Simulated scan of single mutants.
Amino acid sequence: MNLPLHVLLVMDNAPAHPPDLQDDLLEEFKFIKIQFLPPNTTLLLQPLDKQVISKFKKLYTKALFERCFEVTEATNLTLKEFRKYHFHIVACLKMIEKAWEGVTKRTLTSAWKKLWPESIVEHDFEGYEIAPVEPVVNKIVSLAKIMGLEVDNNDIDELVEEQSQELTTEELMELHCVSQQEVVEESLSEEEEEEVTAKQQSSGAIREMLKAWETVASYIEKHHPNKAVDMCATNLFNDNAVSHFHQILKHRQKQMSLDSYLVKKI
Rank of each mutant, 00 (worst) to 15 (best):
P4A: 05
K80E: 15
C177H: 14
V121H: 09
E126P: 07
D24G: 10
L21V: 07
T109G: 15
Y219G: 09
C92K: 05
A233P: 01
I34W: 01
A16R: 07
K250N: 14
K55E: 07
E134K: 15
G204M: 07
W100R: 06
S260Y: 12
F69M: 11
Y261A: 11
L3W: 13
K50W: 14
K254V: 04
L8D: 12
K211T: 13
E194T: 06
E191F: 14
V216M: 13
G148I: 02
S203D: 11
N240E: 11
L45I: 08
T215N: 14
L210N: 01
K50A: 14
F29P: 00
K94L: 10
Y128H: 13
L143T: 01
L249W: 00
L159W: 09
A63Y: 00
R252C: 03
E70G: 06
S257Q: 15
S119N: 12
D239C: 10
S54R: 07
D124G: 11
H86A: 01
I89G: 11
L188H: 09
E97D: 09
L43Y: 14
M11F: 08
K84L: 10
E28R: 08
L9W: 14
P117K: 01
E182D: 10
L5S: 05
I248S: 06
L37E: 01
D24N: 13
V136Q: 00
S119Y: 12
E214D: 08
C232M: 12
A228R: 12
D20S: 10
E70H: 10
K113L: 04
I130H: 15
V160C: 04
A198M: 05
T61L: 15
K114M: 08
L43V: 14
E97P: 00
A111R: 00
E134V: 15
F125R: 09
E70R: 11
K55Y: 06
Y261C: 09
I32L: 03
H251C: 06
A91I: 10
A144K: 01
P15G: 05
E185K: 07
S203W: 06
L48H: 03
V103H: 02
